[in-house]
Design a protein around this nucleic acid. Structure first.
Length: 422
RNA sequence: GGUGAGGUGGAUGAGUGGCUGAAAUCAGCAGUUUGCUAAACUGCCGUAGGGGUUAAACUCUACCGCGGGUUCGAAUCCCGCCCUCACCGCCA
């Protein structure tokens, strides 16, 4: 959620930046500012009357203790009058406050100045790329065929047990998943991230905190009996660890990593994009999250990009890094880099990570603050990224490293996987 | 799921209708003392929103799990919800 002060100080700039995100209703900014002004007027008026009521109540207490009942009764009449005068003001104040809050929730985060304009994924900027596309042998096939041939993943079985989008990993397929999770967690903890195993279901407050609600309500699985959401990413439980926490400046940065399954309804997607491992309802992901000093967040974002890039290099996969344009970014992000890996048999790029700086958008909602040197409380900046999402990595590993003899496993995974070939 | 107890500031914990935004202790911060460390002493030490100020000072309001209610007045009484702990039941 944007801070009101930001809107108040620079309404013009806010509108300009919202336009880059293709926000359709810039007048909302003026409306919020206007309502806030009204809110403050009402608040002042309400507080003044309330102060009078409080003073009178105190006097009544004094009169009563002295046994001056008539005096007390007179003051009671005053209080009654003040209260009935204040009542409509209170109602109006509450209504305006609620309205401001609700409107504020509807504003997306402001894009950083680095964000390129644009509406579609085609307008994302390629920052750099690495690795090289492999030359596949003549019998090369997509990963879903490889999964069947080597008995690694059973999509039909998942269909039977649960439904489409819930594959069953089996034998070496399951082992490779576990190897990747371990490798990623080790890689992240070596870089100073503390490992967590958070709950896989979260309450409403947590889902609001990171911004999944109200924006992506329909994307999450919901357990209505207990009013809990299945997490769409570890970002939700992990960032909420620090909800309502006042940090000390020296405790920053907070670096956390977690492996969790992720659950997404992916309502409304079908077709070839969802074939095999390309898009699932349940998948595994290792996430990294940082809470940092506002002055450091863009530096840290670059660090996280390099961190993820190096994992991809270590896996010997061809990748490219994209800076997302305004139209392709998420609601809550100020700047996002997507990582895509080349899936050689499908001949297409697959997104395997997304790293974002949310600035104070999430911390404002979650009240994650720190005390600066002057003793003032400030919101931290939150950042997170996938390091990494498993299914598409697995798809690329299978496709890119297939040869006449089987599937080669990257060196860094040998000790985790227990062998060099499938 | 049942029964009982309880949720107060960073922590412990007092507080059953007005003088309590909240005792006391500990931790923390600043200072005095001290050869150093330790100890002792003094002061400060919640959050948010208004007003005010160049900035402060100052001042008002709200907050003692959350939401309602009673009352001139609620941390304190009443109702609902949530959570924690203990015991029982069930169970990986």
């Amino acid at each position: 959620m944007l801070q009101l002060a930001t809107l108040r100080m620079n309404p013009g700039e806010v509108k300009q930046r919202l336009a880059i995100k293709n926000f359709k209703d810039p007048a909302m900014v003026d409306l919020i500012i206007q309502l806030d002004e009204e809110r403050r007027k009402l608040s002042t008026s309400f507080d003044e009357t309330k102060a009078k009521i409080n003073a009178a109540s105190k006097e009544i207490g004094q009169f009563m203790s002295k046994g001056q009942k008539e005096e007390a009764d007179l003051r009671k009449k005053d209080v009654e009058a003040l209260k009935s005068a204040n009542h409509p003001i209170q109602e109006e104040l509450e209504a305006v406050e609620k309205q401001v809050h609700e409107l504020l929730l509807q504003l997306p985060n402001l894009p950083s100045p680095l964000v390129p304009p644009g509406k579609t994924p085609e307008e994302n900027q390629e920052i750099r790329s690495g690795g090289s596309k492999p030359e596949l042998h003549s019998g090369a096939v997509p990963h879903w065929d490889l999964a069947k041939k080597f008995d690694l993943i059973d999509f039909e079985l998942g269909n039977k047990i649960t439904g489409s989008g819930f594959p069953v990993y089996k034998g070496k397929g399951a082992r490779l998943q576990r190897a990747l999770v371990q490798y990623f967690l080790d890689y992240n903890t070596k870089a100073g991230y503390t490992e967590f195993m958070p709950p896989h279901l979260v309450n409403e407050a947590s889902a609001y905190g990171t911004g999944q609600l109200p924006d992506k309500e329909g994307q999450m699985y919901f357990v209505s009996e207990d009013h809990l959401y299945l997490i769409p990413t570890a970002e939700v439980p992990v960032t909420n660890i620090y909800r309502d926490v006042m940090l000390k400046e020296h405790e920053l940065p907070v670096k956390m990593t977690a492996y969790t399954p992720c659950f997404r309804r992916e309502a409304g997607s079908y077709g070839k994009d969802v074939r095999g491992l390309n898009r699932l309802h349940q998948f595994d992901k290792v996430e990294i999250v940082q809470l940092v000093h506002p002055d450091k967040s863009y530096e840290v974002l670059e660090e996280m990009v390099v961190h993820i890039e190096k994992i991809l290099q270590s896996l010997e996969l061809p990748y490219r890094i994209l800076r997302l344009c305004g139209g392709d970014m998420s609601f809550t992000s100020a700047l996002t880099y997507d990582f895509e890996v080349y899936s050689a048999a499908q001949e297409k790029w697959l997104e395997v990570s997304s790293v974002s700086n949310f600035e104070t958008y999430q911390s404002n909602r979650m009240k994650i603050r720190f005390k600066d040197e002057g003793g003032k409380s400030q919101f931290v900046h939150t950042l997170n990224g996938s390091a990494l999402a498993l299914p598409r990595i697995l798809a690329c590993l299978l496709e890119n490293f297939q040869n006449e003899n089987g599937i080669k496993i990257p060196v860094v995974l040998h000790s985790y996987f227990g062998s060099e070939m499938i």
